[in-house]
Design a protein around this nucleic acid. Sequence first.
RNA 1: GGGAGUUUAGCUCAGCUGGUUCAGAGCAUCUGCCUUACAAGCAGAGGGUCACUGGUUCGAACCCAGUAACUCCCA
Length: 884
Amino acid sequence: MSIAKTYLPKEAEEKWYSYWLQHNFFRSVPDEREPYTIVIPPPNVTGVLHMGHMLNNTIQDVLIRRARMLGKNACWVPGTDHASIATEAKVVAMLKERGINKKDLSREEFLSYAWEWKEKYGGIILEQLKKLGASCDWERTRFTMDDDMSEAVTDVFIRLYKKGWIYRGVRMVNWDPQGKTAVSDEEVIRKEVNQKLYYIRYALSQEDGLSESGGKDHLIIATTRPETIMADAAICINPNDERYIHLHGKKVFIPLINREIPVILDDYVTMDFGTGCLKVTPAHDLNDYELGQRHHLPVIDILNDDGTLNENAQILVGEDRFAARKKIAVLLEEAGALEKTEDYTSQVGFSERTNAAIEPKLSMQWFCKMQEMAKPALDYVLNGDVKLIPDKFINTYRHWMENVRDWNISRQLWWGQRIPAYYLPNGEYVIAKTIEEALEEAKAITQNPDITAKDLRQEDDVVDTWFSSWLWPISVFDGVKNPDNAEINYYYPTNDLVTAPEILFFWVARMLMAGHELRGQAPFKNVYLTGIVRDKQGRKMSKSLGNSPDPLELIDKYGADGVRVGMLLCSPAGNDLMFDESYCEQGRNFFNKVWNAFKLVKGWEVNDKLSNPNAIAIEWFESRFNQALTEIEENFAQYRLSEALMATYKLVWDDFCAWYLEMIKPAYQQPIDKETYNRTITLFENILKVLHPFMPFITEELWHDELFGERTESDCCIVAQLPLNGQVNTQLINEIGVIQQIIANIRNVRNSKQISPKESLPLAVKATSGIDYIKYEPIIKQLGNIDSFTHTQEQVEGAVNFIGGTDNFYITLNIAVDKEAEQKRLEKERDYLTGFLKSVNAKLNNERFMANAKPEIIENELKKRTDAEVKLKIVEDNLSGLAD
RNA sequence: GGGAGUUUAGCUCAGCUGGUUCAGAGCAUCUGCCUUACAAGCAGAGGGUCACUGGUUCGAACCCAGUAACUCCCA
């Protein structure tokens, strides 16, 4: 069987992915092996695959594949998240396109549309992940609104309610007027916005003849929200503000509506911001709300849920808040109440989901107490039971957990798990899993046996999506409803969680809370936090900027293996990565290199009669391989995936292809001996194993080549066991290091003298180092194209020389040596060595150094000294030889 | 305003407990090569005041203090 000139990723990818599926290699069921578990951060059903997913899932797949090859029972649970706000918005938009208004639908009707939408689009990302090679156990695919997952959510709600950790209350919430729902603090994105600061004149009440005493009949406030003046409950000034002493105890009129409000004193007010007079609008600003509470001010809510002004506003009723802002500015101007406007930039919150400007709004919501749950969740991280990688996130995490506020868990939406609260006609409510249970309880608390299900009304709100996804690592194994089942006992706690730092609080912290509360154990041991994928200019990749490549096109262009390698090459843990397609190109070049190396080996003819001349090369590479294995292992242990990949890359490209294969490569059209051939095939197989987690497809493709002999159906690279660490001959590695130096020097001489690599050269060595060059002669000859290699005690006249290790080498050329240039070069080297020696001696002659430095460091300095002395002598000898 | 982080070659990053030939890698660049696995390649080379200023130390990219720039989080 011959092998194609280049590797064709697409064919191999399709072929092997379905082969793996057919043979159930991704499947995991509990057995006696050690489990290794990852639950996928479930992507939103609304999403399409973006570069963040590519990175995140490449990392997870590398970890999972490696664990599988280490003999663990690797289980990667996939699934999707229902993403209540985002999905509901999509469905509403879809309905709108079809000419259907959500308001005209019943809850049930709307939900059936939503499910229809989910069935159609909800699995797209998972399908796309398959193209990347993701080895998830697809039989375990879960959705956060699967019946049993939802039941778990209800159970947990009831459990926490019974503990007194869930309560209902009026709070200032972040209101999304477009989604018409409250959103949590974490779902509000603050952005700098260019606004105007309106300076508005409020007339003072004249009842006590103030205009004479104060000389003024008005005060001026500065606000960015003039449309909320109708909701003002007071004007607040700082009691220490000397400019306004005359206002103490006075009252003012709100312009346009002429409602009278008091002037109150509170040192909350910053004197040097605006005019120092603050309008207090308790219904529409969190700080004002708290101020209002302190001063017992009325709460006047002038906004409807959709952001339009209501009757309480008296004017501009029905206008949208932003339209109202423009109009009221005109009205104020006309009324002579607008002093001036100024440009002003400030932070405004926007809904993460709908991008609508968030409106602080008072409303009745359900809350989950955080205090008790935050403590153990923080402790897991602080005492190291759960490791954050990189650990710089511990500080942020701690800060958040120590300042956590109660979690608003209700959402005024339909898509999600409906809150299991049932209201009685008298306004009381009961919490129950079903309406039947609710009815029982209602009868009990009201002492009224005649209550029927019809008298009960279930809460309209659903719970926040995170209230279901915080159960994810437990509920995917049915561990909420059946806390002692075999699966959860086997797979929980999971090993690694790979996610973005942005959702450290949203999700990771809450999973820790739920894990502790429900199982007394953190849900995972390590949290690997990936960076944000940015473009070359450092901008976050986004649809609106259009700066994100289409992942599937990338896979098409560079192969899944190329893209995987490309992603990892530029992804240090926790740091953002500046993605550039050239990384994928590098990945593609890499697998191409592997392919070509394979072609070389495959092309060899074996002659049984030949003896093995390559024992040293083989032993050297085996040692290097074992050394690299350790290095790779250490990198993985520290989650330095890009470095593990780089170590693999260099092992394959440099050590194996550039050195080993060149060392053993038979001359053109010459056969190779059997032993070298067989050993090389084994080495190649080991290389495929090490490469597999990074490049699953090409390695599987090559694995099945007949070069490796017959394979049984289930003998696949994906389930092969990684090679064990073997012996490392350090002396051999060091000596080959010197040999490599010598060869580089020979090539350099050729290059600088413009001698063709085809022209063989004579090499002589004057050795004192004790390296047995005879042993390495075949390698030097083969790689340096040397025809004779002689040992000498004398300097070789008229030859070019160089130092390899601490020995002096000569190449006699049949062209004259440029003595002057040679002298200059040697002088330069002499000066360098002299300087170097001086600095080493300075250390060694320093009493404090000798007294304080560790023995091995002193030993090292001594070695540096002897080496430098030897080299200096060589250089000086060569110099005097040149002078003769 | 508060907190955290970053700053090392043209780019992206390593650099562990301060001590290995006066700081390493990959990519990019330059030079020479279509050398029979690979031009998606081979061989070689150049490239750094470790942000800045002080301090500690026999010794600092690394520890300490300050400054600057950038990024993120919270208000």
